[in-house]
Write a protein that binds this DNA or RNA. Structure first.
Lengths: 352, 352
DNA sequence: CTGAAAGCGCTTACAG
DNA sequence: CTGAAAGCGCTTACAG
C-alpha cells in the first residue's frame, strides 16, 4: 500500500494546529472524565480528520495498546474437514457468532500439523497461540502435556469439552453426558426395562467416562444391580449376531450404544437375527441426534449443545480476559437433552 | 498475558550475545544473498529463541513494515451459516487447505456486519482487512464501491468469483459458467432439442451474466436463432402451470433453470400439467449438482469447482504477495463440469 | 486544558 | 559479517 498517502495522527495535529496527543485523545473519545479538551479544539481536530480522510493504523494502535482483539481457534482435528456435515461445524458456528457479538475477529491456526502429522500448539517449542489474545481449543486428539503447559504459562484459553488434568484446573465448557445418560436409562426403566447392555469403546477421554458413569448412576437410581462387565462396556469390536443373541438370551431388553454408529451396528446385528426395535428390544445411543439418522426411523439419542458450547467458550474466554476477577466458575457443563426416537418402547412381554 | 513474561527480540539478542538486528535477520531467514551471518551465531540465536520461547509480535512486525503471515478471509455472507451444508463451505475448505500448505494462518473477519446489517470491509472508514497481509473475499452481496476502493488503495486481495469493475482489473478466481452453459445447450441440441426456454432472475452479477451469455452462445454455435425474451431470461416469478403450458405449446422441449431450485420449480409446474422429464420435456440447471437433489432423480447440472476456486485464490494471492512480478494473470477462470442427470433425453416425437 | 517525550517490538538502511 | 540508530503510528503517563 502507498503508505505515504495515508495521513497519520501527526498530519491531523499539524492541520488542526494541536499536538499529536490531543488528536489521539479526541479520536478515542477520552475527552470525558479527567481530560478536558475545548469543544472548539475537538471540532478542529474532527474537521481535519474528515478533510484528510484519516484512518487509524491498527498495527500501531495494537502495539501501543497491548491487545489485538483476536481470538485464536485451535482444533486438534482438521478445522475444515472435507465432509460438509462435520461434527465440529456447529461448535465453530457458536464460536463465530459469539466472537462477532463480542467484537473479536477469529484467528484460525491452520499450520498446526507437526512433523508427525499430529496437531500441536507448540511449534518448535513456541506457543503459536500467542498471536492472539487468547484462544479456544477443541478436538478429541488433544495433547494433555501441551494443555498443562499452556495453563502453567498463564495463556488464557478455554477448551470445548471437559478436560481434567491433575492439579491444573483448566477452563472448559462441556456437555453433561452423565446426566443425559442417566436420563436415558431412567426412561428405559420407566418403559419397563430391567436388563441393559451398554456398548462402548475402552474408556478414553472425559466424555466417554461421563457417559459410562451416567449409565451406572442411572441403574443405581433405579435400584438395579450393576450388570457387570458382561453387559457393561462391551467393546464395539465384539458386536455380532452371536453376541446380540447371547445378550437377548440372557434377558437384556435394552441396548445402549455410546454413539449413533454403534447403535446402528447393534441394530444390524439384531436384524440379522430377525429382531427389530422397538418390537423385540429397545435401542438408544449416547451420540448426537442428527449425526447419523438410520433409514428406518430415528434412534433415541442426545442433543449435544454444540453451538451453545462454542458460544459459551467464547463468553467465558472473553470474561477471563476482560474481568478476570469476576470469573467465578471456569468449568461449565451445559445440559444435554435426550431426544426420543422410535427405537425405544416397552420390553416384549416375557411370554411373547 | 503477563506481558513482562513475553520475550522480545532484544531479550533474544541479549541472551545470544548479539545485536537486535541480527536476531531479526535470523528470524526472517534473510541470511542468504547479501547478508551473511555465521552458522554459529545463527545457532545461538535459534537456541535462545527456543529457550526463551520467543514469539514475534504481529503488531510490531506489521508496523515496521514486515509481514505477519496472516491471510484474511472476508465473506459478504455469514462465514458460518447455520445450515451445515452451506454453499460456501467448500470454498473455505479449499482456502484452508491451501493456506496450510503455504504456511499462512487465516484471519476470519467476523465483525463485519455494519449498522445496516450489511457486511463491510470498511468499518468506520477503516479497512478492517489491514490486520492481515492480504485477503480472500467472497460472497454474492459484495459492495462494489468497497472493492474499487480496496483496489485503488493497493490492498492485495483476490475475489472468489468473477467480478469486473470499470477500469479496475480486480484479481479473481471464478468458474467458467459461460462454457458450461454452452455445453449444456450443446448436449441438449445433440439430443434433438431445438426450442429452449431459459429461466433466470434479472441479470445480476457476473456469474448470472456468464450463464446467460453461455446459453446464447450455445444456441448460436448450434446455428439456432435467438429465441428472444419470450423464451430467454424468463423471470422466476413468472413460472406457473400456465406459463409452462404456453411454452410447451409454443414448441419448447428443453427447459434450463439458472439454479437447481428454479429447475425444481419448473418441474413442479410441469408435473401439475401431468408432464414429466425426460419423457415430455428435458430439464437442466446451471446450479451446483449436489446443491439440492430432487426427489425423483437427479437433474443435469454443473459441478462448480468450489474447493479448487478457494485453493486457487490463495495461490494467486500469495503469489501476488511474494512474487508480484511473476503474476501474469490476475483473472483466472476454472472449468465447470457438466453433470449429466436423468432429466434430459430426446425430445418427444412431434406426433406423440 | 495542552505539549513534549517515552516507548510498544520490530525492520531496515547505514555505517563499520 | 555485525552494531548503532532511526522510524513505523499510536497511546499514555508526565509535566506544564
Amino acid at each position: 500500500m502507498p503508505r505515504s498517502r495515508r495521513p497519520t495522527q501527526s498530519d491531523i495535529a499539524r492541520a488542526a494546529g494541536v499536538s499529536p496527543a490531543v488528536v489521539s485523545l479526541v479520536i478515542n473519545n477520552r475527552t470525558d472524565g479527567k481530560i478536558r479538551i475545548s469543544a472548539d479544539t475537538q471540532a478542529r481536530v474532527r474537521e481535519a480528520i474528515r478533510t484528510l480522510g484519516y484512518v487509524p493504523n491498527m498495527a500501531a494502535r495494537q502495539l501501543a495498546g497491548g491487545r489485538n482483539n483476536l481470538l485464536g481457534v485451535f482444533t486438534y482435528e482438521p478445522v475444515f474437514p472435507l465432509t460438509e456435515n462435520s461434527f465440529y461445524y456447529p461448535f465453530l458456528v457458536g464460536i463465530e457468532e459469539q466472537a462477532e457479538a463480542l467484537g473479536y475477529d477469529l484467528l484460525l491456526f491452520t499450520r498446526a500439523a507437526g512433523a508427525d502429522g499430529r496437531r500441536q500448539v507448540y511449534r518448535d517449542g513456541v506457543n503459536a497461540l500467542l498471536k492472539a489474545d487468547a484462544a479456544i481449543l477443541l478436538g478429541t486428539n488433544e495433547d494433555r502435556a501441551e494443555l498443562a503447559r499452556l495453563h502453567r504459562e498463564d495463556f488464557p484459553f478455554v477448551f470445548v469439552g471437559r478436560r481434567e488434568i491433575d492439579g491444573e484446573p483448566l477452563a472448559y465448557v462441556g456437555a453433561d453426558y452423565a446426566t443425559a445418560a442417566a436420563t436415558i436409562v431412567a426412561r428405559l426403566v420407566a418403559l419397563g426395562h430391567r436388563e441393559f447392555a451398554y456398548i462402548a469403546g475402552p474408556v478414553g477421554n472425559e466424555s466417554a467416562m461421563d457417559r459410562a458413569e451416567g449409565i451406572r448412576s442411572g441403574l443405581r437410581d433405579a435400584g438395579l444391580p450393576d450388570p457387570g462387565e458382561r453387559h457393561l462396556m462391551i467393546p464395539p469390536s465384539a458386536i455380532d449376531a452371536d453376541l446380540v443373541a447371547r445378550l437377548l438370551r440372557e434377558g437384556v431388553t435394552a441396548f445402549i450404544g455410546a454413539s449413533i454408529s454403534l447403535a446402528n451396528t447393534i441394530a444390524e446385528a439384531a436384524a440379522s437375527l430377525g429382531k427389530t426395535a422397538p418390537r423385540d428390544y429397545s435401542l438408544a445411543a449416547l451420540g448426537n441426534d442428527n449425526e447419523n439418522v438410520g433409514e428406518d426411523g430415528s434412534v433415541t439419542s442426545l442433543h449435544i449443545p454444540r453451538r451453545e458450547m462454542g458460544a459459551g467458550a467464547v463468553q467465558l474466554l472473553v470474561k477471563m480476559l476482560l474481568q478476570p476477577a469476576e470469573v467465578t466458575t471456569r468449568q461449565i457443563m451445559l445440559p444435554c437433552a435426550v431426544v426420543d426416537g422410535a427405537s425405544a418402547g416397552p420390553p416384549p412381554t416375557a411370554d411373547a
